[in-house]
Simulated scan of single mutants.
Amino acid sequence: MNLPAPNSREDLATKPNKFRKHVMEELRGKAFVYFCVLLLVITIFSIVYFIASRGLTPFLSQGVSIKDMLFGLKWKPEGNPPLFGALPFLFGSFATSILAAVIAAPLGFCAAVFMTEIMPKFGKSALQPAIELLAGIPSVVYGFVGLSVVVPFYRDTFPGQGIGIMAGATVLSIMILPTVTTIATDALRSLPNGLKEGSYALGATRWQTIYRMILPTALPSLLTGVVLGIARAFGEALAVQMVIGNAPHIPHSLFESATTLTSIITQSMGNTTSGSLHNNALWSLALILLLMTFLFVFIVRVLERRVKR
């Protein structure tokens, strides 16, 4: 059976067209990617420049001292003279965030160990989706739950009105639990199987392998999840604002009212005039929040380098 011979001239004519088409598609793809990256970089630098230019104005041209803002205890922007002591807000933000991490870290680590080492099938099918579902709940819902459940419980159990740092930390610990648990689970699942097999071969039990081999090896990654959880809690505004009491002073108890940087910004920003000293002082608090975010990102990068080593 004789097959028709291919038309070599037509093949030679179509090859350059196909080559040009592939080259143009690759160029369009590269141009789109570079445009997106450039737009992202410009957006980030624009946000940083805008916040920094507004946040540094009180220190550069309006006579506010950086030392007085960072270590001052009184916030009276309408006083004579005006006072902008932000130490109570810094204390409230750090206290609620760190206490939330202290509560959420053991729960997240135990949940990760349960899902990866004890009951992996049940963890993947039921527990992990349930924990990740917590990340999709709006902040206002957490705030209402805190007002309806957490605050009455603390009011009936401990002295005080129930609102305060402990109530805010409890709500935040539930909010950051998906972050801590997800990162811890990924870290434990990424460990090589030979690590556990070698431990079992030496006669160690499952629990000895978990707390003497698996957890110490994955500790940098586990700490990364804790730091990201703290960063998430540090920037939360609405849920904490609903249960912390919003009192601008340093509390003497975990069950006394306090406030945070995000709370004072959201409460006061709409009641100030753009360009006024009070408004610029709030932008200074926003700049502090931005710098703290950079610090958390730096800590995460350091921990990631330890994991790679």
Rank of each mutant, 00 (worst) to 15 (best):
D68M: 15
P120C: 13
I66W: 15
G164K: 07
I66R: 08
D11S: 10
T185F: 02
V171G: 11
R28E: 14
V33M: 10
I44F: 06
N17S: 13
I214W: 01
A237G: 12
I299D: 03
P129A: 05
Q62S: 09
S148L: 11
V297D: 12
R309F: 11
L107D: 04
L60W: 02
H252P: 10
A231G: 14
L254K: 01
A100K: 00
T259I: 02
N271S: 14
V145L: 11
A169L: 06
I176E: 00
K74M: 14
V180H: 04
A187M: 09
L289I: 04
G194Q: 05
A231E: 12
A167R: 12
F114R: 01
L107W: 09
G235C: 09
S274V: 15
L39M: 15
L289G: 06
G275R: 00
P152A: 02
V240F: 08
R301G: 04
N271C: 11
A286R: 13
I299Y: 13
T209I: 10
T273L: 05
M242T: 00
F50P: 00
T157A: 09
T262K: 03
L3C: 09
F153D: 07
W207V: 15
N279V: 04
V297K: 04
L70H: 07
L238V: 12
N279R: 06
R232H: 01
H278V: 11
L303D: 01
Q128M: 04
L289C: 14
R28L: 14
T170R: 10
L215W: 09
I265T: 09
P88V: 08
I210Y: 02
V140C: 01
F255L: 12
C110R: 02
L147H: 00
I210M: 15
R306L: 05
V302E: 03
G108I: 07
R305I: 10
H249G: 05
G55I: 00
L172F: 05
P178M: 03
N7L: 15
P6V: 14
D186F: 01
F122G: 07
I137Y: 04
L202E: 05
R232P: 00
Y154G: 10
A233E: 08
I244E: 11
T185L: 05
S65H: 04
F294S: 12
G164D: 01
I244A: 15
V23E: 06
F234W: 15
A237F: 13
F45P: 02
S253R: 08
R232L: 00
T266M: 15
M69L: 09
T205S: 15
L73Y: 07
F298C: 06
T259F: 10
A239Y: 02
Q161P: 01
N80Y: 03
A167D: 08
F45T: 03
V150E: 07
H22V: 10
H278S: 12
C110M: 14
V145E: 00
I137A: 11
A204E: 04
G194K: 13
P16T: 07
V140L: 03
A86T: 02
V243Y: 01
L287F: 11
F296E: 13
K76E: 05
